Simulated assay, not measured.
Amino acid sequence: MRVEVDQSLCSGHGQCAVAAPDLFRLDEDGYVLPYDGEVPEGREPHARAGSRACPERALKILATDPGAAAG
């Protein structure tokens, strides 16, 4: 699972970081920073909670295609 951050939609509410502080980091102004890499195994529910908490819908959950790395 990956998280896509659309920083143009982020309004700095910080609710993603409240819901999942171990996954989502904020800059000094309270805007979410890009999420780099795969969501660690077992943290998927937290990533979903962070995404749902965003009032601007700036976070999208993307399924990882297991066949993509093999190609």
Rank of each mutant, 00 (worst) to 15 (best):
E41H: 12
S51A: 15
G50W: 03
G42S: 05
T64D: 15
L23K: 08
A69M: 06
V18T: 14
F24S: 05
A63T: 12
D29V: 01
P40N: 07
A49V: 05
V5A: 05
G71V: 13
A68H: 11
G30K: 07
T64S: 14
Y31K: 13
G42N: 06
P45D: 12
C10R: 03
R52N: 13
A20G: 00
R57E: 15
H13Y: 13
R52P: 00
R2V: 07
D22S: 12
D27Q: 11
S11G: 11
L26V: 04
P40C: 09
T64R: 14
A47S: 12
R2F: 15
P66R: 03
L59D: 04
P34M: 09
P34S: 10
D36M: 10
V18N: 03
F24K: 05
I61G: 02
A70M: 10
P55N: 10
G37R: 08
Y35F: 15
A20P: 00
L33R: 15
G50N: 04
E4D: 06
T64F: 08
P45M: 11
D6S: 09
P21I: 08
Q15R: 13
E38I: 06
S11W: 12
L33G: 04
R25S: 15
Q15Y: 13
P66Y: 03
G71M: 09
H46I: 00
V39M: 03
V5E: 02
Y31L: 15
G14F: 04
F24R: 05
A20M: 01
G71C: 08
V5G: 01
A47F: 07
R57N: 14
R43A: 12
E56N: 12
A20F: 01
D27K: 11
G12Y: 07
R48Q: 11
D36I: 15
R2M: 13
D27M: 11
P40R: 09
P40G: 09
E44H: 10
P45Q: 11
P45S: 12
P55Q: 09
H13E: 11
A69P: 01
V18P: 00
D65C: 13
S11L: 14
G50I: 02
G37D: 06
P40K: 10
A53C: 06
A58R: 02
V18D: 10
G67L: 15
D27L: 09
H13K: 07
P21Y: 09
K60Q: 14
A17G: 04
Q15V: 01
